[in-house]
Nucleic acid binder design. Structure first.
Length: 501
RNA sequence: GGCGGCGUAGCUCAGCUGGUCAGAGCGGGGAUCUCAUAAGUCCCAGGUCGGAGGUUCGAGUCCUCCCGCCGCCA
């Protein structure tokens, strides 16, 4: 069964920060995990470039909009290397012809369904959010998210008949055909639907958009609402805009596979209400799951422009390495609730788990194989209680990882991998290979030592396998240490340096 | 204002449909092995599970109210 997983596409008016890195890494783990289990996977990310925010940011810097967008989009795409992201595709909404064509087609389909109409209206618009606010939602007359005063907008735009899809959306969410997780978020969506869905504006005047964005088909004076445009990326990237249905679209969106969106809590309504409604209107299949993550704070504070280098994922990776950063994001961020990031915690986690955990285990096992068996992994001829229990834990680990990831619980999934380290260390303590080795000095080869070393190497290999979706580079290192070259394991040296000293 | 939810050991948190649910990790205290990056393993937390009532043979686990947080919507 196919598995299509996407991240949201961030605005590119600023450089990427750690909060978005969380979403990227989470999506990457799902993609890698499915691939490792033999599934057909497509992993999409991209950048949302048609926002008025970009125009304003470019003006502030005194550069051309396209230049600013190109530069920042490059910074997002470039995260693939430091964060080890296995993108299969990366879409840019201002540059990709397929996106413009796809948005036009999506628009046409909804138009043919009779879901657009023109209406004059007045509202308070926050450019930072690219959304309208009601008076009551403002705090002291300002946007609760951005702290800026929204502008009063009064114009005639195209509206989308969202109200028409209220009942069907409710049914889809209730039945689980469209799964939203965690359940608290699903309940929020249901509450939102039940409160009554109102049609919303899906275009703006070309003037207000400063001429930036995708023109409304058949109405050159209007530009497609940036959220409408952005949401479309999940299907335009698959070639929706092509004249004939593309193979990619059929394979990843139109089939019976999974279509998974990772989103931050702030954009839930767009993904769980607007987007499915748009697809219903267009007569296209819906996503199957929307996975909602919360936000990160840094040293107790909301991430903001003044947070600086601490929240630059690339800078963190330069300082601590890909594995340490990924591991913190996966091992310490709870399934529900905001998580607080500090460099101290990242370092503590990396030292305890990577250096003292994964690294130390593999190093000590390989060293023993060298010291007691000249680097040759022995064939077990007996099974002891200790080795049997270790094998049992190894056998269970993959199932536990699967279950945790299916529940969108990275912490539990990482903990499941960790059980291999714990049990392997325990096995060493129980079998005491050094004593078995001493007993061989009389001449007889110890079958118990063969069994212990064989089971331990097997556990390390299992560790490398299970770890690979989370920390691909580290896992690769683990696997190589456990793979004989010309019948002999490579000489062992420490795998991970301590970060904290 | 309306509707979720949360408040469990110093810290971060697990605890599904009520009866080994009073837990894990970290920190802290103690012991111990030596293959290993002074890494590993083992033991130690008597915390009234926010407060007060109630339902029940029995409630962190259900109900009511109160206090304190937070989310969504208006």
């Amino acid at each position: 069964m196919s598995y299509y997983v996407t991240t949201t596409i961030p605005y590119v008016n600023a450089r990427p920060h750690l909060g978005f890195a969380l979403e990227l890494v989470q999506a990457d783990v799902l993609a890698r995990h499915r691939r490792a289990r033999g599934g057909a996977v497509r992993f999409l990310s991209g950048t949302d470039e048609n926002s008025l925010k970009n125009v304003l940011a470019a003006e502030a810097e005194g550069v051309a909009v396209q230049d600013l967008v190109d530069r920042n989009a490059a910074a997002f795409a470039a995260l693939a290397t430091p964060l080890a992201l296995s993108f299969d595709d990366f879409i840019r909404t201002s540059r990709d012809p397929r996106h413009r064509e796809g948005v036009a087609q999506l628009w046409q389909r909804c138009a043919e369904a009779g879901d657009f109409y023109r209406k004059a209206y007045t509202g308070l618009y926050c450019v930072g959010c690219e959304a309208f606010y009601g008076e009551a939602e403002l705090v002291d007359g300002r946007c609760p998210d951005h702290g800026t005063e929204p502008q009063t907008v009064s114009e005639e735009n195209w509206f989308f008949r969202l109200s028409r899809y209220q009942d069907r959306l409710r049914e889809l969410v209730t039945s689980g055909e469209l799964r939203i997780e965690p359940v608290s978020r699903r309940n929020e969506v249901l509450a939102l639907i039940d409160s009554g869905l109102r049609d919303f504006s899906v275009s703006r005047s070309r003037a207000r958009a400063r001429g930036w964005g995708i023109p409304v088909p058949g109405d050159e004076d209007q530009v497609v609402y940036v959220w409408w445009d952005a949401l479309g990326n999940y299907v335009t990237s698959l070639g929706l805009g092509d004249d004939a249905p593309t193979e990619d679209f059929a394979r990843w969106w139109a089939g019976d596979g999974e279509r998974v969106h990772l989103v931050g809590k702030g954009v839930l309504r767009f993904h769980a209400v607007y987007w499915p409604a748009m697809l219903l209107s267009a007569g296209l299949p819906l996503p199957t799951r929307v996975l909602v993550h919360d936000y990160l704070t840094v040293s107790g504070r909301k991430i903001s422009k003044s947070s600086g280098d601490v929240v630059d994922p690339a800078a963190l990776v330069a300082r601590y390495g890909t594995d340490a950063v990924r591991w913190w994001l996966l091992r310490e961020v709870p399934r529900v609730g905001d998580a607080d990031f500090t460099e101290e915690r990242l370092v503590a986690r990396a030292d305890a788990d990577l250096a003292d955990g994964f690294g130390n285990l593999v190093h000590r096992v390989v060293t023993m194989v060298h010291r007691y068996r000249d680097g040759v992994v022995p064939q077990p001829t007996v099974e002891t209680t200790a080795t049997a229990e270790l094998r049992a834990v190894c056998a269970r680990a993959s199932g536990r990882v699967d279950a945790a990831l299916d529940a969108f619980d990275y912490r539990a999934a990482a903990a499941a991998v960790w059980t291999l380290v714990e049990e392997a260390n325990r096995c060493i303590d129980r079998t005491r290979p050094w004593e078995l080795a001493k007993s061989e000095r009389g001449g007889a080869r110890s079958a118990a030592l063969d069994a212990a070393l064989a089971a331990l190497v097997a556990a390390c290999r299992a560790l490398g396998e299970e770890l690979s979706p989370f920390l691909p580079a580290a896992a690769d290192r683990v696997v190589r240490r456990c793979t004989p070259v010309n019948g002999v394991l490579p000489e062992s040296t420490p795998l991970f340096a301590k970060l904290g000293g």
